[in-house]
Write a protein that binds this DNA or RNA. Sequence first.
DNA 1: ATCCTATCCTGTAGGC
DNA 2: TGCCTACAGGATAGGA
Length: 311
Amino acid sequence: MPELPEVETVRRALQATVTGRTIRSVRLSGLALREPIPRGFAKQVAGHRLTAARRLGKYLLLDLDGGLTMLSHLGMSGRWLFFPEPPSSDMPHVHARLRFTDGAELWFQDPRRFGLLRAVATERLERDRSLALVGVDPIQNPPAGAWLHARARGTRIAVKQFLLDQKRVAGIGNIYASEILHRAAVHPRLRAGRVPGEGWEAIAREIRAVLNEAIDRNGTTFSMYRTMWNEPGAYGDQLRVYDRSGEPCRTCGTPIRRIVQGARATFFCPRCQPASPRAARRSRGPRRRHSTAKPSVRQRQTRRKATSSGS
DNA sequence: ATCCTATCCTGTAGGC
DNA sequence: TGCCTACAGGATAGGA
């Protein structure tokens, strides 16, 4: 569920609320997530104060004093929930409850249990078996088009799959991969090794633009994602292709198509994202979104709607 | 080495 | 209404 913008939204909320608080005690559900929460977790973190909330790709890093870091991943359905005063009624699928010395609580809820929660010595984070596999973070360290181009040389996987691989660029998931490729005008099935340099320049540009715009809107709520304040993300209105199968492309009106790649849905516009570079050159003439001086009526409406509906 | 498939789990939407 | 199936924002072990 949560991709980089959703995780960043959660990180900011955690940074603003739980840093400075000291953990008094921890209760665990005992159910395994992606892997079991380690037995000693509660004892490790109890008594320590949260000093910072960081993020790497889709991983959240909650630093504690004393050189310890809580490493968490939200998987498909994970949420961190903060309660200044914890509710008396129980909630389902809560796997960890951190109680602070002031009575506030932080809960980790995860119905599908694909998430992750463990404590790692801060100085050993780079060697953590999960984090060690995480590639560059596109917000902290935006990859240049040439860098992506070089990384893609010789690889035969589709460019959509390339963007989903967390070992290269970390944080892009299934929604934003489709969105980035549409805005970059690159067909998702193109082999990454065959995407031309100008394609990678466009992809690099749109990775930054899409992720930053999504962060500005607190992410996308497709079905279950909520911010830590239980509010939906507002980027949903901005989606150009994701989950819009059959609906008109917001750029050219052509019906959006849904295909399956690696058992995941991909959405794209067959006209804006031609299957071959040759076809791309052929069709580039009539509609040049990025070079027209005047935004289209539709673009202006979208912009106005976005600014007026912002929280 | 690289790439692909299946798998973990629950909730929900849509078809009948 | 209820039952059934398909699918969902992720990561990864293991096989090809």
